[in-house]
């Protein structure tokens, strides 16, 4: 029982990180029908900007943890969103009217480019960071097993919930959110009622990158080591999560992320750690066979 609970907590934490990245995939797919394969790299850059900010803060001698965390969060959100904006502006917008395959290949190219760019600038070795937040609650003591809920896990879950609330409000209540949904349903018609489609797409990339950067910060705090390659695996997992939840559906992305996190954590706990990625992808294959629209996705009705 205790062991199960512990895996549940670990899996949920991991799921939050995947969910935040998955929203970027699902939003971009919803609006321009393209899988932005470079989104995992945006997440990785978010993690790198976080650690650079942390080290800079250490240099100027600011050691108070809550303030340091806040500065890291804001810096990485701001700078990573600039990367997201630039990615769309430079690599995808010129290809807006070309065949889908061209955009897809460009996305893969940008992914490789960003990986190599970080490897070149930051070096190939892993970057360790000492834990910023330690300690936590002991929830349960069953025999010789102790269930821990660390402060860090609480922070990750709370921050994700807050971001989700703000994000949902933005999509449902603001002019940008309405324009975003309108573009998702009919790009041409949205332009005809005066929505600046290019700007809406730009803002979509910026929003996705902002959420991914927070995931990057959480990954850094949770694992304590990052390298230029973390974006690949996390990106593929988050993409799996987006497909599992139903690509194009925002609650689906969060649900999918949570499920992938839980599957991974339970699989490593009860079966083998080596095959946890296989488990996640098996789920993806099964979903694609039996429910191609995902858990919360709507079937794509061909427009006449």
């Amino acid at each position: 029982m205790g062991y199960f609970l512990q895996q549940l907590i670990n899996g949920a934490t991991l799921g939050m990180i995947y969910g935040l990245i998955a929203i970027g995939y699902t939003m971009v797919y919803g609006i321009i029908g393209m899988i932005n394969f470079a989104h995992g790299e945006i997440f990785m850059i978010g993690a790198f900007i976080s650690i650079i900010t942390f080290l800079t803060l250490g240099l100027v001698g600011m050691g108070w943890v809550p303030l340091a965390l806040l500065v890291m969060l804001l810096t990485t959100m701001l700078l990573t969103s600039v990367y997201g904006w630039a990615l769309e502006r430079l690599a995808y917008r010129p290809l807006r009217h070309s065949p889908r395959l061209a955009a897809l290949i460009t996305a893969i190219g940008m992914s490789i480019f960003l990986q190599n760019y970080v490897q070149l600038v930051q070096g190939a070795r892993v970057k360790p960071m000492q834990p910023l937040i330690s300690g936590g609650f002991r929830l349960l003591k069953g025999g010789d097993f102790v269930v821990n809920l660390s402060y860090l896990q609480i922070l990750i879950i709370l921050l994700t919930v807050v971001l989700m609330i703000v994000f949902t409000l933005m999509i449902n209540r603001t002019a940008f959110g309405r324009a975003q949904r309108a573009c998702q349903q009919d790009l041409g018609m949205a332009a005809l009622i005066g929505v600046d489609v290019d700007r809406t797409i730009s803002l979509t990339f910026v929003t996705g990158a902002t959420l991914a950067s927070v995931a990057g910060l959480m990954f850094l705090l949770n694992y304590g080591v990052i390298d230029f390659y973390i974006g690949f695996l996390a990106g593929i997992k988050a993409f799996t999560a987006a497909v599992l939840g139903g690509i194009g559906s925002l609650p689906g992305a969060m649900l999918g992320g949570l499920l992938i996190g839980l599957i991974e954590s339970f699989w490593s706990a009860y079966f083998t750690v080596e095959y946890k990625d296989v488990a996640a992808y098996t789920i993806l294959v099964l979903v694609l066979i039996f429910r191609p629209t995902g858990l919360l996705g709507k079937p794509d009705i061909e427009k006449v």
């Binding site: 933005m170 603001t174 002019a175 940008f176 309108a182 803002l203």
Partner: peptide
């Protein structure tokens, strides 16, 4: 309402 997007976007300071 979405047809009045531009007025709202300006008023909302871009969100």
């Amino acid at each position: 309402i979405v047809a009045q997007h531009n007025d709202l976007m300006r008023a909302s300071g871009y969100t």
